[in-house]
Each structure stands twice: as structure tokens, then as C-alpha cells.
Computed example of a mutant assay.
Amino acid sequence: MSVRVVVADDQELVRAGFSMILDAQPDIEVVAEAGDGEQAVAAVRAHGPDLLLLDIRMPVMDGIEAARIVCAESGCRVLMLTTFDLDDYVYDALRAGASGFLLKDVRRDDLIHAVRVVAAGESLLAPSVTTKLIAEFTARTVARPAVPPTERLGVLTAREQETLRMIARGLSNAEIAQAMVVSEHTVKTHVSNVLTKLGLRDRVQAVIAAYEGGLIVPGAG
């Protein structure tokens, strides 16, 4: 089954280039293109794609608002495009529900890999950058009152909280399994339970929940 994608970027050459690369893959189908945020939302509503490749900076409606609407209305996953790896907008994109982001000068193979990974339900952020990115994200939102762990995370078992803590520190399922001395299958079950109980879309959102819920302190090891 093909991954159905909508490509949204206000630069026609960039949009056409990404579409051509993705559509050439046997397991990826570009079902629509959009030149602004409003068109991106309309395309998702019309075509029901699996993934929206969306530029953060868009005319008419910016990418953040478009991502927020798409994530609220559908199960379509959002992969954001940005010019800078720590663009201020990245933090807003993650809060809006995006599953990760790519630099616009991404290599062809990395673009294809990213689409497949995010469409499969994983987050794009590599473990090596997850903690740094989310710590900076939370540091920028310190004015927002924190939710005590017992209120937000109290629905999780001790094992699930420990799993969430390790996710927030950037550990892979294999590394979590080794640390907890359990099978990867068990870890996958814990991760699934964490996402379901907290109503989260993916691991990126889980990391944010861990910081916001007080399970992990920004800057802590």
C-alpha cells in the first residue's frame, strides 16, 4: 500500500522537486500539491492523505496554523520543512502536532526515508537531537504553568512512567529494553500504552509531555 502524500510549499520549484522525488518511489504517491497553508488544509480535507509535507513559512495561512488544523481534524501526519534546524517556528510546529521536521536542503534519500518513517508512525527527530530540542522548547515556554506529574501522568503505571522518562532522554526501543531488562516487544507495548493513555500522536509529543508533566527537568541529564 502506497503512502499518500500532499506536498505544500509556496516555492513552486521546491514543491515540484519534492513531488517528483517522492512520486518516483514505488511505495509513495503524491496526491496533491499546495502553494499556501489554506490550500494545504483544503488538500488534506479533499484527499485524506497519510502525510502532509508542509513548509513552516507559508502565505495566506502559515504552516503552524495549517498543521494545527490538520492534526486536530485528521490522522494525517505532518512533516514540517524549515530553513534552519533550530528555527523558532519548530517549537510551535511540535506543539501544533507535527511529527518532526526536515531542512529544505535535505538530501534526496533522506527525504524519502523521512516520509516513510513518519508515515509509519515514528517521529523524525533523531535521539541525539530530541532531548536538546525539547529542552530548548520547554525553556521557551517557562511562563506556562507546569502540570504536576500526579495530575498529568498519574494514569501511567510505574513502568510506563519509566518508559516515558527514557523516551524523553532520547533512548530507542532497543536501548530502553536493555535498560529495563525486558524484550523490545514489551517496550513497544509500554510505548503504545503511554501514547494511548495520554492521548499523544507519537514519540515527539511524548517527549513534550514528559517535560511539561515534570517527569524530566529541562537541561537535566
Results as ranks from 00 to 15, higher is better:
Gly170Glu: 01
Met80Thr: 10
Ser74Val: 06
Ile21Arg: 09
Met20His: 12
Met166Trp: 08
Asp85Thr: 13
Glu122Gly: 03
Met180Asn: 05
Arg68Leu: 02
Val118Ala: 08
Asp202Tyr: 03
Arg201Gly: 09
Gly48Trp: 07
Glu73Met: 13
Arg144Asn: 09
Asp9Tyr: 04
Asn173Ala: 11
Met58Ala: 04
Gly219Gln: 04
Leu125Cys: 11
Met80Ser: 04
Glu151Gln: 12
Asp9Val: 06
Arg57Leu: 13
Ile216Lys: 00
Met20Pro: 03
Lys197Phe: 10
Val117Trp: 00
Val14Trp: 10
Ser123Cys: 12
Ala114Pro: 04
Arg68Gly: 04
Ala46Asn: 13
Val41Thr: 08
Val78Met: 03
Cys76Met: 06
Ile208His: 03
Arg107Leu: 11
Tyr211Ser: 12
Leu54His: 01
Leu79Val: 15
Arg45Gln: 12
Glu12Met: 12
Gly97Cys: 05
Pro148Met: 07
Val5Gln: 04
Ala119Pro: 07
Ala139Ile: 05
Ile167Tyr: 03
Gly97His: 00
Ala67Asn: 00
Ser183Pro: 14
Thr189Val: 12
Gln11Leu: 14
Phe84Gly: 04
Leu53Phe: 12
Asn173Pro: 06
Thr141Ser: 14
Ser19Lys: 09
Ala220Asn: 07
Gly170Phe: 01
Arg116Asn: 09
Val60Tyr: 07
Arg203Gln: 08
Leu156Ala: 07
Cys71Arg: 06
Met61Asn: 07
Thr131Ala: 07
Val90His: 06
Gln25Glu: 15
Ala34Glu: 03
Phe101Glu: 01
Ser99Val: 01
Val142Pro: 01
Arg45Leu: 08
His113Asn: 12
Gly199Met: 09
Ala40Asn: 01
Ile134Gln: 00
Lys132Tyr: 07
His113Gly: 07
Gly154His: 10
Glu65Thr: 15
Val30Asp: 06
Arg57Phe: 11
Thr150Glu: 15
